[in-house]
Structure formats: structure tokens, C-alpha cells
Amino acid sequence: MEPRRVLVIDDEAIFTNLVKLNLEKTGRFTVREVNNPLEALAAAREFRPQVVLLDVIMPGRDGGQVLAELRAHEFTYLPAIFVTATMTQRGLQQRDDQIDGVPFIAKPVEPKKLIKRIEEVLGYS
């Protein structure tokens, strides 16, 4: 199977680096990192992601605004997972890893859990 394309948007390069490393070593994903949320749309147009992983709170533009921008263009149905350092794993688990139906994952992210979450939103396990 072709590796799935994952766009990771977070102002913390160390986080996007780690996600890329962990996902790509499985051979099941190819990852494009974006550390400036203002560049998200251009990166998406070039990379054509199948899923986007994005931080909620970023300087310049928050994750909600970035996703709204992507979905207002040609990525209307792009599945998304939000990442946050402001809630604990436990707190999110108690809410079924979602807020209002939107998938969330807490930092620090466990690679296995992240992969499982991505596969869930892509519709396979």
C-alpha cells in the first residue's frame, strides 16, 4: 500500500521532527512538516495530505483557523487530529479523546497511540 500522506503543523520543530521520524519508520506514512501555520495552505497544496495533525495554540494563527482555511479551499473533507499540550492524556481519555466530536491527542504523544489515532480517522485499523 502507498504510504499515507500526513501533514503535521506545529510551531515546535522538535515535535514535528519526532512525529515524522516515528511515522515514517513504520513505512506506512510519509510526513510533511510545517512549523509556520501561515504556510499551511501552500504546503497542503503541494503535498496533498490525506490527514492533518495540527496544534491548537500556535503563534500567528491557531489550529482552528488553519483547519478552517484548509477546508475553505480544496481540502473540505480533510480529516484532522488536534494536538494539545494544555490537557493531559488522562483528561482527554476521559472524554474519549475528543472535544465536540473533534479528535484530540495530548502531548507528549505516544507514537503507538498516534498511529492508532491516525488510522482511525483514515477509516482503517
Binding site: 482552528g64 483557523q65 494539545t84 472535544i99 465536540d100
Partner: peptide, 8 residues
């Protein structure tokens, strides 16, 4: 707070 941010 996260809900408010996500929904602008």
C-alpha cells in the same frame, strides 16, 4: 477554552 478557540 479549546472549544472557543477551535470554533473561533
Amino acid at each position: 477554552v479549546l472549544r472557543a478557540i477551535l470554533t473561533n
